[in-house]
Amino acid sequence: MVGDRKLLEPLFSAVSLVLRVVLGLVVAGFVMSLFVDGVHFASIGGDVCLAADGMSGSSSDTDAMFGAREGVTVNASPEYCTSDPSRSQQALEVLRDLPSTILMLGGLLLLNRLLRGAARDGVYTARTASRLRGLGWWLLAGSLVTTVAQAIAKAQLLATFVEEDMADALGNVWDIPFFSIFTALGLFTFARIVRAGVVMREDVEATI
């Protein structure tokens, strides 16, 4: 419906464009990794690095290196890297990065499907409300699963970089996805609003 399509702008056009660009970059990256030396797809085959965000330290050498003024100290967090990663380290690196990529691509695909369906069938339809709920569940469950998977992968990867007696000092690797959770709850709310609109329209049409 033309009227409903206008209601969905500029999000409709923006999501469609971003989805095409992201999918194009993914395909291009995969193809280049097969034929171009030095290009690695999904971090496979390259250096494996990981910053220990929960650890920090400072020294006079660090202060001087980063040009700190007198009386100012520089706190630095270590970043562990290996240019010859083992297969397990490569697998953990992929597990650390891949879930968020899947969450983003899946979310874009579901959002694109939602917007195209709403433009075609109408905003206030049961199908649109169902797709809103589906996107909300994907974002809620996906963000929680992604957080857990990445936290486990990060902790295991860090453990391969340090001595065993340092494993307990790696710091907190958990990051609760508050924004994604509240965005998902908002989608559930809008789905209920759309569903209520559908019922109201059906009542009006039945009365007429």
Rank of each mutant, 00 (worst) to 15 (best):
Asp168Tyr: 07
Asn172Thr: 04
Arg127Pro: 01
Ala167Glu: 07
Gly136Glu: 06
Ala141Leu: 13
Gly142Ser: 06
Val162Ile: 10
Ala126Pro: 05
Arg133Ile: 07
Ile181Gly: 02
Ala169Trp: 07
Ala155Thr: 09
Asp121Pro: 05
Trp174Ser: 10
Thr125Arg: 07
Leu158Tyr: 01
Ala159Leu: 00
Asn172Tyr: 11
Phe179Ala: 15
Leu140Gln: 10
Ala155Asn: 05
Leu144Met: 10
Ile152Lys: 00
Thr147Ile: 10
Met166Asn: 09
Ser143Phe: 06
Gly117His: 10
Val162Arg: 11
Ala149Met: 15
Ala167Ile: 12
Arg133Asn: 11
Thr146Arg: 01
Gly171Thr: 12
Arg116Cys: 06
Ile181Cys: 11
Leu144Phe: 09
Val173Asn: 04
Thr128Gly: 04
Ala151Thr: 14
Phe161Pro: 04
Leu157Ile: 13
Gly134Asn: 03
Met166Phe: 03
Asn172Asp: 15
Leu170Gln: 11
Leu132Met: 12
Asp175Val: 05
Phe179Tyr: 08
Val123Met: 13
Ser180Asp: 15
Asp121Arg: 11
Ala119Pro: 03
Ala118Glu: 07
Gly136Leu: 03
Phe161Met: 14
Phe179Trp: 15
Trp137Ala: 11
Leu158Trp: 04
Gln156Thr: 11
Leu114Gly: 05
Arg133Phe: 08
Arg131Ala: 12
Ala153Asp: 11
Leu158Thr: 03
Met166Ala: 08
Arg127Thr: 15
Ala169Pro: 04
Leu170Phe: 03
Leu158Cys: 04
Arg116Thr: 12
